[in-house]
């Protein structure tokens, strides 16, 4: 039964209007702000000063490199660990205590806000945190200074670990459902034809769940690129991750910094989108 176009339009119109106004409108206003157009006060002195200011920020390149490193490392580690965990979990009977506990924790973890993960990471990993205290108790270190700098560090290890802690369950849950929809049959067939367990996974199962995993990685990458609270709580004083840098500039008492802050956010978003698209076409291209 064909549905009239008008009724479909009525169904999508509210979403299109709200996202168009809030998201599209916000994006457009952001762009206008960065090129010196301020419709409220009727100012139209178009210039690229904001982008020049961003380009001249001290330590900008270090921030860019670190941000890309954090997003990439978080994505790769989350995918690697999450997929392995899902495969292991599927092999294990799911009604064992361990299987059920893992599943529950996966789902429970999805509900934990990122800010809690960041706070937990600091209290666990800092040089006087719980792990350092355990190491001291075991006689492995003689004081906080001997414990490796895992948070507030220049390589942002703490930030990455906080993201990975949050995203592994996400990847795990997604992979489980992808595996369930593929079923065990194709893998078993490959095994019966003499493939090793790894070969069966690599050449039979993985290609089938790959699009889902790419989507999953895309979400993690974009999220790690744009989130403020995790690096703000776990990051070093320098270099700062781009969202932290942008937020600090946006709320500084110099209003002149504001367009530059928006420009920084937009550039990050655009660069991120570019990387995501390149990455996706690379991955889907490789499949062929």
């Amino acid at each position: 039964m064909p549905v009239r176009a008008a009724s479909v339009r009525r169904m999508v119109a509210p979403t299109v209007a709200v996202l168009g106004l809030l998201f599209g409108g916000g994006l457009l206003l952001a762009v206008l702000q960065t090129i010196g157009v301020s419709p409220f006060v009727g100012r139209f002195d178009v210039s690229l000063a904001a982008y020049r200011q961003v380009a001249g920020l001290p330590g900008l390149w270090a921030s860019i490199v670190l941000t890309v490193w954090v997003a990439t490392a978080s994505t790769v580690l989350s995918l690697g660990i999450g997929v392995s965990a899902a495969v292991a979990l599927r092999r294990l009977a799911a009604d064992t205590v361990l299987g059920r506990a893992t599943l529950f924790l996966f789902q429970a973890n999805l509900t934990v806000p990122h800010v809690v993960a960041a706070v937990g990471a600091v209290w666990l990993l800092s040089q006087s945190g719980l792990l350092a205290r355990a190491a001291f108790g075991l006689g492995l270190i003689s004081g906080p200074q001997d414990f490796p700098a895992l948070v507030y560090d220049r390589a942002a290890i703490g930030t990455i670990l906080a993201y990975v802690w949050k995203e592994v369950p996400f990847v795990g849950v997604v992979t489980l459902s992808l595996l369930a929809s593929v079923g065990d049959r194709p893998g078993q067939t490959a095994r019966s034809l003499g493939a090793t367990r790894w070969q069966a996974f690599r050449h039979v199962t993985l290609p089938q769940i790959r699009p889902g995993l790419i989507a999953c990685g895309t979400i993690i990458f974009a999220f790690a690129l744009g989130t403020y609270e995790v690096p703000a709580l776990t990051g070093a004083s320098q270099p700062k991750l781009l969202p932290v840098l942008a937020y600090e500039m946006f709320t500084s008492h110099t209003l002149a910094d504001r367009p530059a802050a928006v420009a920084l956010s937009l550039t990050t978003a655009a660069a991120g989108l570019g990387m995501i698209l390149a990455w996706r076409s690379l991955l889907t291209g490789a499949r062929r």
Binding site: V12, L22, F23, G25, V31, L32, I219, Y228, P243, I276
Partner: peptide, 28 residues
């Protein structure tokens, strides 16, 4: 329906584009 791809893209965009810049734009 016609334009479905565009609607899909609009819906996906907020997941792919970090929201901080958008919120900064909306602020005024």
């Amino acid at each position: 329906f016609p334009g479905k791809r565009w609607v899909e893209m609009l819906v996906l965009a907020p997941i792919l584009v970090p929201g901080l810049g958008v919120a900064m734009g909306l602020h005024a």
